[in-house]
Nucleic acid binder design. Structure first.
Lengths: 154, 154
DNA sequence: TATTGTTATACTCTATAACTATA
DNA sequence: TATAGTTATAGAGTATAACAATA
């Protein structure tokens, strides 16, 4: 077994810079790593983080409108149009008319969409668990709770 | 005084979705919010998060090469060229020849660069403290420590 | 041979405004 | 008059490959 992990690059001294102590920088770098890992895991399913997130909310039974998706995922409504178009053309999701507001589209996953999501979710979870393994087990839930405060500050 | 904070949107039920429990999603959303806040604070100084990060490392005395900047900031080396070009044209940083490796450029901030960085840093810190205020004071250091594990997993 | 910085290019993502249909 | 979705488009960001200088 390896006695200790080795660092991959020779730029270790940059970690002692003031920037490396900034929470915003740590967030950005952690997100970049997690995003790359998630996209790599999703590629075999023809998804990326964005389309996976939309599919996940459609497969859940929250029946989101496109406007809600935009706000929740921090995207412009016009970007949601493109994402939903792509998923709908692959028959993974459907736009349903909202009976309460005929302007709004409610997004619902098809059976094929739910099946693909289940497989993609397993792949994403596997890399997520691997990425989280650097965090002590007893701290993982606390980290998620604290991150949630930052992600939903109101 | 307000009795309690109010939520800004009507899509609260999406927060009960499985996606909202994913660490990767929380990271992405927290990062999106922090990035938007930082960019807004930096705009008056003619900087964005990217250029601010490069300037910060140049103003620190770590003397990073462009290759190190690329790896540290998770950018392509060609993007670093463009960022450094912009800062150098504004006389905020200089490319110095690395005596140890004549292929490499070491980045150093000018006096003007250090002065601008000091002002920009104060602005960024102000919004950072504000964003962090949603996290209990006794948890803030722990959050930074855990995030650092995710940002630098090796 | 491999690596640093650079250039060129294509591709994706993002932001903005205008339009329609409904409220 | 305001809002949900759509379209168009321009700008910013990203990824890739090739090149010269140096290791």
């Amino acid at each position: 077994m390896p006695a200790e992990r080795t660092r991959s690059t020779g730029s270790d001294r940059l970690r002692d810079s003031a920037l490396a102590g900034d929470l915003s920088f740590l967030l950005a770098r952690a997100n970049a790593l997690a995003l790359a890992a998630a996209n790599a895991a999703l590629a075999t399913h023809g998804l990326k983080a964005r389309s996976y997130s939309v599919l996940a909310l459609a497969a859940d039974d929250v029946r989101p409108t496109q406007r809600e998706l935009a706000e929740f995922l921090r995207l412009d409504p016009s970007q949601v149009v493109a994402l939903v178009d792509g998923l709908e053309q692959r028959h993974l999701v459907e736009r349903h008319a909202d009976p309460a507001d005929r302007r709004a589209n409610v997004l619902v996953a098809t059976d094929a969409g739910r099946a693909l999501f289940a497989r993609a979710r397993d792949a994403v979870r596997a890399v997520g668990i691997d990425s989280l393994s650097v965090v002590p087990a007893q701290d993982q839930a606390r980290l998620a709770r604290l991150l949630r405060l930052l992600a939903f500050p109101d």
